[in-house]
Write a protein that binds this DNA or RNA. Structure first.
Lengths: 204, 204
DNA sequence: GAAACAAATCAGGAAAAAACTGAATAAAGA
DNA sequence: TCTTTATTCAGTTTTTTCCTGATTTGTTTC
């Protein structure tokens, strides 16, 4: 029996999914978390074989958390279980140590196959993501630096270059050229499109 | 026994939630849909007592669909079942004829109480939404006109006022003043913040 | 029906911000 | 080490923002 835990802020999803998994003979659920803080504490008490991890948690980003946990517990296998069919997110998650990536709109059977595959230490991607990654295998993922993420956030909140510059104690020109890089990276023509694309890619 | 159907593009959620509801003695699931088209066809064959409806479906917006269905089947009771804790969306849904609004991160028990309450023809809101609507009871929901939505979309796609004006065969000044109205309505300082807020409110 | 209101259209100008081009230094990865 | 990328700063042009208006049409309210 494979020991599985779930971290997802949708209690209803966690509860019903737990029941479904427990009713199968594949795995048993030994922990349910609705935020990253509780999940971190739970894992410290003993890690399961597999952690099913969502991306949008109330207190942080699941993809970043994935990097943190696979570093702390190298034996822990993580399957991202999320609604985001986004090249960048999937690529990022796998780079951060996730061994599986399953969409919530995948066939329910896939999660069982995923759990079994990943428990043997093999990578598992649900069909749609597998196709997506193969299609874009020559595309490289977009990585934003911390500075870029910071300036992107200020921009999305409506702050001008000058205001942002004051916040981070830098020259306006610095912010302007960082914005220029953001426009290049996301292939946007102006700030409005940049914010739009950033939301599409769940960068914000 | 209350006759319930579900429309949500996350198969995994639909499947596990269906099981949970079927195992209870409250209701039974008589239909599962993963898109609006199939849901529309299914309802045409016979409406259940209650439809659990998600908002982000692959082929359209659940809130708009809610208006369409309550008009076609006045006896159909709809509970929005979604992850969005957004004043505007909730308000919009209720205005469009939804009788219930339950968050996916609500306590799983709430969906059973919701089903029972709504089946009696009474409104049901999960706790968090109930609090949200009471807090903002004096706030009015933001409604965008078709023109505003159109210009918002062009803006999010990176087109300037001039370019947008050419697309819709209107003067630049018209687009400018429409943008000004959008900034006012969403209380945004510039286009970047406007697009950010529009995404937060799921206006795009 | 009249009054009040909102939406959609168009107008112009001053100030501010963003977009474009360029470039030097520092840091990180190969 | 060499190459690439991040970070920093600068000048010029284009665009947006922020004011001020006005007219017409359609809808809602009294």
């Amino acid at each position: 029996m494979i020991d599985v835990q779930i971290a997802d802020d949708h209690k209803m999803v966690v509860e019903s999914l737990s029941r479904m998994i427990n009713e199968s003979s594949v795995a048993r659920i030994t922990g349910k978390y609705y935020d990253l803080k509780t999940c971190r504490e739970g894992l410290a008490k003993g890690t399961p074989d597999i952690l099913l991890l969502d991306i949008e948690l109330p207190d942080g980003d699941g993809v970043d958390f994935c990097a943190e946990m696979t570093k702390t517990y190298p034996e822990l296998k993580i399957i991202m279980l999320t609604g985001f069919k986004e090249f960048n997110i999937a690529k990022h998650a796998l780079h951060n140590g996730a061994l599986g990536y399953v969409l919530k709109n995948a066939d329910p059977e896939e999660i069982f196959i995923g759990i079994e595959t990943v428990s043997r230490g093999e990578q598992f991607l649900c069909e749609e993501i597998d196709i997506l990654l193969k299609e874009k295998k020559d595309t490289k993922a977009i990585w934003l630096t911390d500075r870029e993420k910071e300036i992107l956030k200020y921009t999305a909140d409506g702050y001008t270059s000058k205001e942002t510059a004051d916040f981070i104690f830098r020259d306006v020109e610095t912010v302007k050229s960082c914005r220029k890089n953001l426009l290049l990276k996301l292939k946007a023509k102006n700030m409005a499109e940049l914010i739009g694309k950033a939301y599409e890619m769940k960068l914000i």
